[in-house]
Amino acid sequence: MSLSEGSVRSMLATNLRRARSERGLSLSELSRRSKIGKATLSQLESGTGNPTIETVFSLSRVLEVPISDLLDARPAGELTVVRAADVEVLSGEGVDLRPLQRIESGDAVVELFDQQVRAGRRQESLGHVGTEHTIVQAGRLGVRVEGHEVELGPGDYVRFDASRPHSYLALDGDVRSVLLLQYRAEQRLHLSDPALGGGPCGSER
């Protein structure tokens, strides 16, 4: 997802309105379920908000859609090159994510991210749709899933049900890793359907 394809902010605004419409949720109800303020959601839908990892993953969990249905990553062509400088970073309390690609094959959808966990910081998640896969490239990463903790080094891999509460912690300096989120195709919304409309920015159903 490059800057030329539109910013994370503008794509989230469009897709959030459509996803909310598809689920038949008002801003007030989405706010209640996601624990995100109604004013913040209104700003996100109007394209003036500042989305964080925590916000996007919370919306993914409540709306039960893959992250890429909110960020609108593009499917791969015959040759796809994604330059680091062309990708916007989605930041959270302890993690910086760069969405690189969405891969669709049969009944599987995989989202590919470059992930950096900042030194000494923990990134918490209440859970979201999909199965999470992480491959550590550099550094030591602590992973906690519902109270179970493992430590990973370069080349190590972990897989878990992403709907469970989980967290990442950089144990010794920054950690560079590859994050893959795997979904079933039926978990995706058909956000390209013009019939979903979306209505005016910030409006409720």
Rank of each mutant, 00 (worst) to 15 (best):
S177A: 15
L126G: 09
R9V: 12
P194F: 11
R17E: 02
E22Y: 05
V95M: 08
P194E: 08
G199Y: 04
S10L: 12
L141A: 02
Q182P: 00
Q187N: 13
L25D: 01
V110M: 14
D69Q: 15
E132S: 12
T14P: 00
S4M: 04
S203Q: 10
T80Q: 12
E64S: 06
D86G: 07
E186Y: 15
E204R: 07
I36R: 04
L79S: 15
A39Y: 10
G147M: 11
A13C: 09
T40A: 15
A84M: 09
A76C: 12
V65A: 08
L16H: 05
Y157T: 09
D161S: 15
V109T: 13
T55S: 07
S177L: 15
D114R: 14
A19R: 11
S28C: 03
S91T: 13
G77M: 05
P75F: 04
L59G: 00
K38F: 01
F57E: 06
I53D: 02
S167R: 01
H190C: 11
G198T: 02
P154M: 06
L90G: 00
D107I: 13
G198Y: 03
L189N: 11
P99R: 01
A195M: 11
A138Y: 05
L44D: 01
I135H: 03
G155P: 03
R9L: 11
V143Q: 04
Q187P: 12
T55C: 07
V150Q: 15
P66M: 03
L41K: 07
V143G: 00
D161R: 15
E93V: 12
Y157G: 04
R9K: 13
G139L: 06
G147L: 14
Q116N: 11
P51V: 01
E149F: 02
E45L: 08
L25S: 02
R61A: 10
E204H: 09
L191H: 03
A19G: 05
V178N: 05
L171D: 09
A195W: 09
E104M: 08
S34T: 10
A39D: 10
P154A: 15
R205A: 08
Y157E: 09
H148W: 12
S58E: 06
N15M: 04
S177C: 13
Q182W: 01
V82F: 02
F160D: 00
Y157L: 14
Q182C: 13
K38H: 07
R176H: 08
G147A: 09
R98D: 04
G202S: 11
L152Y: 04
G6A: 06
D72W: 12
D72N: 11
